[in-house]
């Protein structure tokens, strides 16, 4: 349990979110800490071709906007999306996404600017500048799911969509 504020130079600077969330939920009475997925052998593949020739895609953990529920009990107790992976065209760029039920820092910032977590506009600019080959025609959603088995299954689904769209590399942006 944390009892002292961080002092400059005396504490680890970056927030350890795994430790912070474990302690928080323990204080809320959850006896079993969440066990994060670990992969002894992380997959790694070099770029298949120069980045300037690559089609780049995005995977987000946010969800298409459907309603604002910030502050309601349902947001605290129940997920409010289907938790199924989805695919959505990048054009038009969504003006907003549903993020109410995700654990981003609602005191320090906001998610009104989708570019802060869904970098479609930034990738389009990079493509126009020739930095990347192109932006994938769809972005993919992998809503936060605590089941690692289901997450693995969702990853396979999204991988097939990437193949369908001839995506060379994806950027996963967790929110």
């Amino acid at each position: 349990m944390r009892s002292k504020p961080a002092l400059p130079g005396a504490h680890r600077h970056a927030v350890s979110y795994i430790d912070r969330s474990r302690e928080y939920y323990a204080a809320c009475g959850y006896e079993q800490p969440y066990r994060w997925a670990t992969n002894a052998d992380s997959p790694f593949a070099p770029l298949p071709k120069p980045l300037a020739q690559c089609r780049v895609g995005i995977i987000t953990t946010s969800y298409p906007h459907h309603e604002d529920l910030a502050g309601s009990d349902d947001v605290e107790f129940f997920p409010l999306t289907t938790k199924a992976p989805y695919a959505q065209p990048v054009d038009p760029i969504p003006s907003r996404m549903f993020t109410d039920d995700l654990s981003w820092d609602k005191d320090a910032t906001h998610t009104d600017d989708v570019a802060t977590f869904l970098p479609i506009a930034q990738l389009a600019a990079a493509a126009a500048a020739g930095r990347i080959g192109s932006t994938a025609p769809r972005f993919f959603g992998a809503p936060t799911n605590y089941s690692q088995r289901q997450t693995n299954a969702d990853a396979e689904t999204i991988a097939r969509w990437c193949d369908d769209d001839e995506v060379d590399v994806v950027v996963l942006v967790p929110l």
Binding site: A14, S103, W104, D105, D112, T116, A121
Partner: peptide, 25 residues
Amino acid sequence: DYPLGNPCGRPDDVEDQAAVLEETL
């Protein structure tokens, strides 16, 4: 190293967002 919610850059800061993407690429 931002508060959770803005991994691709500061809100309404196109320069910062472009810089983060360049670091990503």
